[in-house]
Design a protein around this nucleic acid. Structure first.
Length: 191
DNA sequence: CACGCGATTTGG
DNA sequence: CAAATCGCGTGT
């Protein structure tokens, strides 16, 4: 059985317009290694947060202890805690100095392997929300500021899963009612 | 240093 | 529909 071709996404992939990267992330494969377990899932929902003008983006506050990571290199991980209990997983986009990130809101087809990635078994849990998926994948603030790569036990790969343009839906982002005209930007993407 | 609230989820 | 629960940004 020939192993599936898996191309690990690097900074180049994330160094682009945030909404474009958010769309391209759909259908990409999210890996998380935790102890002897390797989790594999398909990214199915994302949201783009782009520029200091975007009032929905934390980075609209400027460079603060929390937001500085979004000003850093593309391909880094931004994790923050919301409502005192849920960790949100984001990937930084755009060149260093320009604040932007993508929130991973949903993953699907979560499987795991505990034998060095040879056999993946289905894990029948719901991962259709940003707080749910980080709980399942045991992602917390310890990932904040790290590069998304296998050495850090969290990475994204292109395994040539074909997504037709017609499969991608878009609409307003969730939970940002305070963001004035930015509320209506269709920067949420899902399959 | 006190205060208010959020890129959510769950249960009543 | 409201509670849970706490770090961060703001203003004092």
């Amino acid at each position: 059985m020939k192993p599936k071709k898996s191309i690990i996404l690097t900074a180049d992939f994330f160094n682009n317009e945030t909404h474009e990267v958010a769309k391209k992330l759909l259908g990409k494969v999210l890996y998380r290694r935790e102890g002897n377990k390797l989790y594999r899932s398909i990214i199915s929902e994302t949201e783009a947060y782009h520029s200091m003008q975007d009032l929905a983006c934390h980075c609209s506050k400027g460079i603060t202890p929390r937001t500085k990571i979004m000003f850093d290199q593309p391909g880094h991980i931004y994790v923050y805690l919301i409502y005192g209990m849920y960790h949100m997983l984001n990937f930084v986009t755009m060149p260093k100095g320009f604040p932007a990130a993508i929130l991973v809101r949903g993953i699907k087809d979560l499987t795991y392997s505990d034998d060095n990635g040879q056999t993946f078994k289905p894990l029948n849990v719901l991962t259709n929300g940003p707080g749910k998926l980080t709980k399942q994948l045991k992602i917390d603030k310890s990932f904040n500021g790290l590069e998304v790569k296998p050495e850090n036990n969290l990475w994204v790969a292109d395994e040539n899963i074909k997504i037709a343009g017609s499969e991608i839906k878009s609409g307003p982002r969730i939970g940002i009612a305070y963001a004035k005209e930015w509320v209506y930007k269709p920067w949420r993407f899902w399959l």
